[in-house]
């Protein structure tokens, strides 16, 4: 089963490799990982998407907690959360397909952020399903390149 784990860490060099090293050293999966500073500049938040059975996930949570640089670990799975991911998509825009791409961008409430001859760069935010749906629909036009941030998540309410 997939799990989204939110980890507050000391904002100092080497922390990312402590966390990623823990995953690789113990054979845990990382499906995605995003990290940036929080409102407190001495603290960063990592959002890690991983998968494994209950025993593995229990170990992941405990092992993360054991790292001295880790301040707090929260498993957001099975909690009410807002999940978002950002994607940048470079897609072919030939004269005959341009209109279709624009329509899709509109339907998905995405944005065109760069225009070149025969090519649009689209920015979209959403949950994974929405992003995957847009990618699916754009595919026939020829996707040249995509960049995804990986999931970030925050608990709903207080």
């Amino acid at each position: 089963m997939r799990h989204t784990i939110s980890v507050l860490v000391e904002n100092e060099f080497g922390v990312l490799s402590r966390v990623s090293g823990l995953f690789s050293g113990r054979g845990f999966n990382i499906e995605s990982l995003s990290v940036a500073e929080t409102q407190d500049p001495t603290v960063s938040r990592m959002t890690i998407v991983t998968s494994g059975n209950d025993q593995i996930v229990e170990q992941i949570l405990k092992q993360l907690n054991k790292l001295v640089s880790v301040i707090k670990v929260v498993n957001l799975t099975n909690k009410e959360t807002v999940n978002r991911e950002l994607v940048l998509i470079k897609v072919n825009a030939d004269p005959e397909t341009k209109a279709e791409v624009l329509r899709l961008v509109d339907i998905f409430r995405a944005k065109i952020v760069d225009v070149a001859i025969r090519c649009y760069t689209i920015e979209m935010t959403g949950d994974e399903e929405k992003i995957n749906a847009l990618l699916q629909l754009l595919k026939p036009n020829g996707i040249r390149e995509i960049v995804r941030t990986g999931r970030v998540a925050i608990a709903r309410g207080m």
């Binding site: 080497g14 490799s17 001295v68």
Partner: peptide, 14 residues
Amino acid sequence: IVGITRPCTKHNYL
């Protein structure tokens, strides 16, 4: 050495 010993120390410092 900090990188090398990261997986075999309880913690390490530079």
